[in-house]
């Protein structure tokens, strides 16, 4: 195993981060299915600071997916407050939420979710299109991002011509288009083999360390925990462990 494919050494000091960009307090989510009310999230509070690499971990049924949806503003909590930078997210209209998703959140999915009929370049441009970035600027930015993830030479290809790892790199490039406040990655290595998965993790790590990109990663893979500056472990809709210890207390 070469250096670049291995998990970075453990002794990297967890980064305390810059100013707070995400603040969740007492987030609860209840689903009403008929007469039965299911409490999925039972009061979750945490903060994420700029430049941190945060892992949200937990087994299935722990409320991980719901947490992801709320963080990604695809769903709203039943109660509690969610501040993204200075914006109180709960009060936004559907249209404003879409705009926030577009400008401030970079989505990365487990199954990449690239558009098969678009070229790599066009795929990377999609969030910028919704942000009304001019064609010329979009092109330049797409090239820059593709180079950043090591795919500058494949702009004209289609996703079907790429390997899984390459597809996820394209998805990472796409998520960065509008300089989002944070990247929200949902099991980004779930569909990849171990080696390719590590490559993607290293890409995240590099972006985090070199460009100070805030990353929130939702995963159940415990092997990646050494990467995180902060771990939020969910079980039965509650935070059961935080890492480093006392990170939220300060």
């Amino acid at each position: 195993m070469t250096m670049s494919n291995s998990i970075p050494p453990f002794e990297i000091t967890p980064y305390a981060g810059g100013e707070v960009v995400l603040r969740l307090s007492d987030i609860r989510k209840t689903y009403n299915s008929g007469e039965l009310a299911v409490n999925v999230l039972k009061g979750i509070s945490f903060e994420i600071r700029r430049g941190q690499f945060v892992g949200i971990v937990g087994t299935s049924g722990s409320g991980k997916s719901t947490m992801l949806n709320i963080l990604g503003m695809l769903d709203v909590p039943t109660s509690g407050s969610y501040l993204l930078e200075d914006i109180n997210v709960e009060t936004l209209t559907d249209q404003e939420q879409a705009t926030i998703r577009n400008r401030k959140i970079g989505f990365i999915f487990q199954s990449f979710n690239l558009f098969p009929y678009l070229t790599i370049e066009q795929n990377i441009e999609v969030p910028m299109i919704y942000n009304r970035v001019s064609r010329r600027v979009r092109r330049a930015r797409a090239l820059e991002l593709a180079k950043q993830v090591g795919l500058g030479h494949r702009l004209g290809h289609r996703p079907t011509q790429l390997s899984g790892g390459e597809c996820q790199r394209v998805a990472v490039a796409r998520s960065l288009g509008n300089h989002p406040t944070f990247l929200l990655a949902d099991e980004p290595t779930g569909n990849l083999d171990e080696k390719t998965g590590n490559e993607i993790m290293n890409l995240f790590h590099r972006l985090n360390r070199e460009q100070n990109v805030t990353i929130v990663m939702v995963t159940h893979n415990p092997l990646f925990e050494p990467h995180y500056d902060q771990v939020i472990r969910l079980r039965d809709g509650l935070v059961v462990q935080e890492f480093p210890q006392g990170a939220f207390a300060s």
Binding site: Q95, A98, R101, F109, N113, P127, Y130
Partner: peptide
Amino acid sequence: RKEIGTRRALGAQKVD
């Protein structure tokens, strides 16, 4: 619908 969901996540408005 997966494409639609992805587009919405990436910032597409309903009107888009």
